[in-house]
Amino acid sequence: MEITVTINGTAHTADVEPRTLLVQFIRENVGLTGTNIGCDTSSCGACSIHLDGEAAKSCTILAVQADGAAVTTIEGMAAADGTLHPMQAAFMENHGLQCGYCTPGMVMAATSLLAENPSPTEEEVRIGLEGNLCRCTGYHNIVKAVMACAES
C-alpha cells in the first residue's frame, strides 16, 4: 500500500506492507535511526516520536495508520543550524543521559509532556514519563533536565 508520511517536515512516500511498523518505516525506509527500538512491546518508550504533535510509541503503530500524518523524530528537534532544542540542551547540561539509548524517546516524551503541562511539578514529571524506561536508572537527572527546561 502506498503511504505518505511527513517526517520532520519532509513528505516521504513509499509502498509498504500493511504490517510494517511505523518505527520500521522511520528507520528502514526513511533511514532515520535516531528513533530506537527497545522492548518492542510498547513498554519502554525508546521508540517515542511525535505523531501530529503528541508523543506516541512508534513500535505499536502501523505505518499505514500514520498515512497522511506529521511525524517528528529526534532528528527533527534541533534547529537547521544545529542549535539544540531547549530540551536537548537541558539534558546535556543536567547530565540527563548515561548510555543514551533511552534519550531520544525521553526527549520526545518530555517535550510532549511540557506541551500539555508547561509548568509541571517534579511529581508530575515523574508520572508523565512513566512510559519511558532508563535502564541506567538515570531518572534523577532526567527529571532535573525536564524541570530545568520547563523553568527556562
Binding site: 510498547s42 518508550g45 517515542s48 505523531l51 503528541e54 508523543a55 506516541a56 510509541k57 505499536t60 503503530i61 516524551a109 510532549s112 509532556l113 500539555e116 508523565g128 512513566e130 512510559g131 519511558n132
Partner: peptide, 9 residues
C-alpha cells in the same frame, strides 16, 4: 491506563 503515549492513541 498505560502511559501518556498509550493514552494518546
Amino acid at each position: 491506563v498505560g502511559d501518556p503515549q498509550v493514552r494518546h492513541r
